[in-house]
Design a protein around this nucleic acid. Structure first.
Lengths: 272, 272
DNA sequence: TGAATAGTGTCTTTCAGACAATATGGA
DNA sequence: TCCATATTGTCTGAAAGACACTATTCA
């Protein structure tokens, strides 16, 4: 907070003119060392540069297993293989809108996810054999793997994450195996340090429900007593409802709602 | 690993035909509930959908202060304001290539950063008043704030992060204030759990150098003894060289190189 | 009553925070 | 010698891991 000068007003003489020269001269006019300005260096040419798509990695827990929603491809390339739900981002819409369309259009699920977070952008030039497609990927989580993506629109299916890459698992299209691997890693990491897990369970939930969601996603066992201590000592993680729920045998468990937007500091460490 | 069925081969009868109908009929043919397939749902129309740009948030430490590289805009909109270095992603290049061009083209720095990581995508429709520009942002780090982005191409400047948003700081163009805020938060978080800090110092470095980088980025004081213990107990964080360096007064310090790709588990917690 | 699950208490271990003590150079 | 920085050692407190114990329900 010391050596900042007061609002410089230098205007790089002679450069704004050079920047305009050659505009709308085609793709070559934008490349090279001349860096255009604007958000992301946009220089006023309104011709789009690439196809931007979104791919959604939608996770859920079903039967104490982490599952991911995939759709079977009906067309080449990679016909018969399984892909992440995706959609092209139209010029007028947001990426978020495109993600909703990608999932709902395939499965008919009205409320497709309880949480949606950015993951990473995949831009390898040859990832689609037809043309350049850059994919912004999203990590999504929903509390119910049912209703399964069935009905008339059914081309989607929940796959256990554990079988992907094995003989019992789906063949993934394009670079989606890499995207899924990255997504699983990010999911596991964000469970360590955020309250993302509350989006994996239906409200109201018990601490046992929440713990089993962690165990499914991490493929590890957690000590119920220590888990409880960590969750309840984190402000804003869960909100007690005061009610109880008895399910089958055993002592009825206290019920909780999702808290605010909690950050776990220090994080809940994954065993191993 | 249990209930996976063996390689289903269902082919969604009747849908591949519907999917082809109306193709190349313009933007409307891609929107709606019909979800195209391919990476990101690309449907074979080779017309780009948006302008994709990259913006680079390049950090360094100078005089024990965290600084960020900004460039002054010479043209409307936002002429005279400061912006992150950015560039449009051309159809044939990767985002990484575009980031290098964005920084080098403005400053002439040959090796502009020692590390480049994805940050987030900003896609608010009105973020650029001229047209739809979607920006993939990158968190970059370099070990030397010098050579300053000077010389004939100078339109860039290192600004202390602490003065941004104050009367002594720059006016930021577009939504770059929000991007910078997100970048600072991510930088601070990644310093907690990765070895990113080693990219902020020149090799070889002392543990004092590394600690001062943390202190600048976190705007906090760290206990040298505890810092040393944490760094040296993390496999792959730093690599001893065996050499020493005497600088000014005080006992000469041991010199280290950057280690592999370390993960801090549990993380080094930021004070406060 | 016994099985099953929820919740409490407590001992131990690990690790970070604080800080004293020692090491080693330059002024 | 004095000062500044690096490095080592040690004490303490917070929090996680392990696990025994109690609580409450249903079969």
């Amino acid at each position: 907070m010391a050596k900042a000068t007061k609002k410089p007003t230098r205007r790089e003489p002679g450069r704004s003119k050079a920047g305009k020269a050659g505009k709308r001269g085609g793709s070559a006019s934008r490349a090279g060392t001349e860096v255009p300005d604007g958000p992301g260096g946009y220089d006023g040419d309104d011709r789009p540069s690439v196809v931007l798509a979104v791919d959604v990695v939608l996770f859920a827990v079903r039967d104490d297993e982490l599952v991911v929603l995939l759709v079977e491809r009906g067309r080449e390339p990679h016909a018969g293989r399984w892909a992440l739900p995706g959609a092209v981002v139209e010029p007028e819409e947001t990426m978020r809108s495109a993600t909703r369309r990608a999932v709902t259009g395939r499965t008919g699920i009205v409320e497709p996810f309880t949480r949606l977070e950015q993951l990473a952008v995949f831009d390898a030039p040859e990832r689609d054999p037809r043309t350049r497609v850059v994919s912004a990927t999203f990590l999504a989580v929903c509390a119910r793997a049912v209703p399964p993506p069935g009905g008339a629109l059914a081309s989607g299916r929940w796959w256990p994450v554990g079988v992907v890459g094995t003989d019992d698992g789906p063949d993934l299209a394009f670079d989606h195996a890499g995207i899924l691997t990255a997504a699983v890693g990010e999911l596991r990491g964000r469970l360590e340090r955020t309250d993302l897990a509350t989006a994996l369970v239906e409200v109201p939930f018990t601490l046992g429900d929440l713990r089993r969601a962690y165990e499914a996603a991490w493929d590890a066992d957690l000590e119920p007593a220590n888990f409880r201590r960590k969750v309840l000592s984190t402000p804003g993680f869960v909100e007690p409802t005061g009610a109880n729920r008895a399910v089958g045998t055993g002592r009825p468990a206290e019920l909780y709602d999702r808290g605010g937007d909690a950050v776990l500091r220090p994080p809940m460490l994954r065993p191993g």
